[in-house]
Structures are given as structure tokens and as C-alpha cells.
Amino acid sequence: MSATAAPRAAHGIFHKAGSLRAERRWALWSAYVSLIIAAIVMLAPPFYMLITALKTSAEIADLGGNPWIVRSPTLENFAAILGNEMFRGFFWNSIQVTVLVVIVTMLISVPAAFALSRMRFWGSQWLATGVFLTYLVPDTLLFIPLYQIVGGLGLLNSTWGLVLVYPTLTVPFCTWIMIGYFASIPKELDEAALIDGAGWLQMLWRIFIPVALPGIIAATIFAFTVSWAAFVYPTAFITRPDEMPLTIGVVSQLIRGDTFAWGQLMAGALLAALPPVVVYAFLMDYYVAGLTAGATKG
């Protein structure tokens, strides 16, 4: 951080026009150099996963030569993993759980956020604080009691058990950022709706949801990425391969024995990571808005 600050400090206030421009150029150069280095480091692991997935097993096993380049690219790893029925099962389980959890999350958090931001009632301030506090409770603190509870309900080894517990990951944050978005809607809109004779639910449905749509998209993306990437709960609750979602399925089932099929493993991991990456690529601004909303809107 002091890289750009240092040269300016040396000159103090007695700038000459030429040196100022040189300084600016120097600052820009150092910025680009750092960004390039950072981008290389940040993108190296996924890049190497892709390189490995494109190699044949013989090329992976070959220790001579640069492992970072692929000499005879092949799609056979992707074909093999897509032809693997178990892997397709993981994918299907993930889609099922994620879609259900996103729907449940939005149905819970949007009305609740509306009530908390617009209808002051006894304890609403406390409840809003409670929502934030539950967001801070990590899943690793809860998985053992939840293991007992889910087991008591007979939902271990079932995707329904996951649909039951994932809202603990998604609902608090989604409610929290929706409270922020709803609170930023001007009161005049409510009043206009009231003059037209709208009830509370009409107000929510006709005004708040359309106006806060960017917030709803951000919250949906958050709920989607979190339930897609969830790892602690499925690891604890699911031991039968046919009920596993992708994260734990790829990590536990594709790693078998002493000789790993690295190419297939990497192909599987990349395909599993694809949905959130695609969502991110197309909706980056909403994604970033959702990330930063938690701290800046609160």
C-alpha cells in the first residue's frame, strides 16, 4: 500500500509539472504490475485444474517436462466424467437442493424483511439484530446438534434433510440485505399506495418487490452460491453416494484408492464449479452488490 505513497512523500508540496506526470505514470505502472501478478496467482489454480483435465492419464503421469502446458489436449476426461452415472446423480441432487433452498429462502426472507423494515412492531429492532447475530453463527458450531435433530427426524442420508438445514446458511444474510434495500425505498411510495387503497401485502407485492428487484436478485444469487457450495452439512449428514450433492460427492467419491484419476477428478471439480461461475460471469454487478451490501447498507 505504501508503494504508491512513498515517491510522493519524497517530493512534498513542491511539485513540478513534469515530475508529477512521471509520478502518476510510475503509480500506474506499479498498479498494473501488482494487478498482473495478483491475477496470475488468483487464476493459476483454476487454470491448472483445466490443464490437468485436458491431459491424458499418460501425460499426467509423465514427470518430464512442464506440467503447466498440455501437449495433446483431449476431452476424454470430461466425456468420462459426464458418462459417470454417479456424477450425474450428484449434479441432479445439487440442482434439486439448491433450487428448493433458494425458493424457501426467498419466501421466508422477503416478507420478513418487509415487516422488519416497514412495520415497526414490538421487538422488531431486537429481531433485526437477532437476524444479524444468527448470520454470524457458523455452520461448524451447529452441525453436531443438527446431526442429532436431523437424525431424530429420520432425514439423514436424504436431500430433504439438506433442504431443511440450508436455510440456516442463507436466510439470515438474505433477510439482512433485504432489510437494507427495503429501508432505502422512499416512504412517499407507501403513502401513494395507501391512498390508492392498497393493503400491506399488495404494497409488498406491487411496490416493494419490483422496486427492490436488484436487491432480490443479489439475495437470490447469494442463496444460490451458498447452497451450491455448502460443504459441512452434506459431509455430516450424507454418507450414501446416491444422495450426495456435488461438493461432497466430488471430494469423497471420485477419490478412490491409491491411484487417483486426476484428470477426471479435475474435470469433475471444474464442471461442479461451473454453475456459480457462469452466474457470476453474467451477473457480476449484482453479485458484488450483494457482497458489499451486508456491511455498507447495515
Partner: peptide, 26 residues
Amino acid sequence: QRIWRGMLLVPWVIPPALSTLGWWWM
């Protein structure tokens, strides 16, 4: 800024269990 931000945020987007597999292999 957009494109750089887009590239640098990639690690945060990949589910950590899966990207860690890549690191494990590295």
C-alpha cells in the same frame, strides 16, 4: 477496473471445497 475486478474475484466464486481439490493436486 471491471475486468480486473472480475478476474481477481474468481477464487471467491468457486466453491472452496472444489478449488481446494485443485490446490491439493498442485
